[in-house]
Amino acid sequence: MSMIFAILFYLATLLFVVGLLSRIKLYAQTPAPLKIPTTPAPTTKTGVAFRLTREVVFFESLFKANLWTWAAGWLFHTSLLLVTLRHLRYFTDPVWGWVAFIQPFGIYAGITMLLGLCGLWARRLFVERIRYISTPSDHLWLVLLIVIAVTGLLMQFVAHTDVVAVKTYFLGLLHLDIGSLPSDALLLLHLFLVFALLALFPLSKLLHAPGVFFSPTRNQTDDCREHRHLSAWAGKLESEK
């Protein structure tokens, strides 16, 4: 089992990193031939940085759109961030100071993450418009995340796993040294689903994470009259004329 999970760990990490980087490369290399910021838009690069920051940190546009979706979505994403950072303790020795500091917050974030996810799923199930646009994979992603959260919380509050052994195992993996992983069902399920999430990330709608940074309506500067914006393929048309 330790061996299988080691392979899964490496494989998932590889797929995640390579898949994500190649997708980011594709986005970066695809030209944006026209200026299409959704206006009113910032007129400077600093302004654009602020706009993107507000979008990524506070989900500004979603806030304008729908308060319930925003509340559930923001709760889920910020909680996930805290929970993920908390898990750095299993990969660092000695544990960094700030990671130690956020441990208690990270634990409660596990609960709020679950709440957020349930809210999002409830919307998908009970709001007619959103039910209409949902595909099976939309539901499955939520189920996957919910099961990850629940198994994690169960290990925290109900059936403890040997976290010291888990940490030793993962620290070993970082040095290509495969030790032994505790074999409780909860832990194995938790890890398996996290690996699945990582591996499928670059093939799925989770690409919204890098996508938002490449969205021309959000990342372009409104300086159309002051600077001539010309992409390579559009520029070629001029020499033909």
Partner: peptide, 24 residues
């Protein structure tokens, strides 16, 4: 078009079906 327009390329991937636009 996917190769020529970043907007289309990114927008085909990025939607999560959150429904923010659904009543707009």
């Amino acid at each position: 078009l996917l190769g020529k327009f970043r907007s289309l390329r990114v927008y085909m991937d990025a939607c999560v079906h959150c429904g923010a636009c659904s009543d707009k």
